[in-house]
Design a protein around this nucleic acid. Sequence first.
DNA 1: ACCACATGTCAGTATGTTCTGACACATGGC
DNA 2: GCCATGTGTCAGAACATACTGACATGTGGT
Lengths: 112, 112
Amino acid sequence: MALTTDARIGVSPQVGLFEAIVALSHPQRMRIAAKLAEGRNYVSQLARDLQMSRPLLHLHLARLEAAGLVRSEMEVSDDGKAMRYVVLTPFSFHLTPDAVVAAARELNNRDD
Amino acid sequence: MALTTDARIGVSPQVGLFEAIVALSHPQRMRIAAKLAEGRNYVSQLARDLQMSRPLLHLHLARLEAAGLVRSEMEVSDDGKAMRYVVLTPFSFHLTPDAVVAAARELNNRDD
DNA sequence: ACCACATGTCAGTATGTTCTGACACATGGC
DNA sequence: GCCATGTGTCAGAACATACTGACATGTGGT
């Protein structure tokens, strides 16, 4: 019974297509997402791997997370350090003219 | 036999996913693409429909066209006016972690 | 000749995003 | 106590993009 919940991990809520597109529209964020596809990682390590400053990475991660492409949680390592692990969510969007029409409709509804 | 060529209309070359994403990452361009999904249109009319200035629309159309999401051609109307008609290409991208990895690899190759 | 409508371009401004450097805080090991 | 490592935030500079307004060009119709 306890497995029921765990089995649902991986099923992402699918936020708007537009937010996903905006989130991935920057080379750095595209690289971050790609790196995270290799597996989960914590912020400082990720910053080293991608050779970018932590504050900057922090900003980009926030954008990715807001779009629902990434999720993160704090963990305490063996030596007691608080570490934020980030994972890529298994998103899936179909980018077609029809999807664009739907996304644009969403945008208009937002202006109400 | 002459149909062979015409039958190929609609098969787009599929430019990079990243360029497509960047092109659609702006609300205005998303709306432009959505409007063009209704059918082809010429620039001035499109500007009126979307209530944006022609110079601005011109800029956005250039970006959409560079990404391969849109194509355009000049035509001469019955009353002799040169009009630029724009059409949305039938693009199709699958936006997943794997696609992101591929797109990021593309980005890195570009820096060589 | 002038008006209405189409095309395109350019300079300059406004706005928004990206990026850096400095700061503050916490923990374990030397 | 101090250093290394982790976390986060903020102000301001640097950069990129979006946007406006004015201009130049062409056509047919009145």
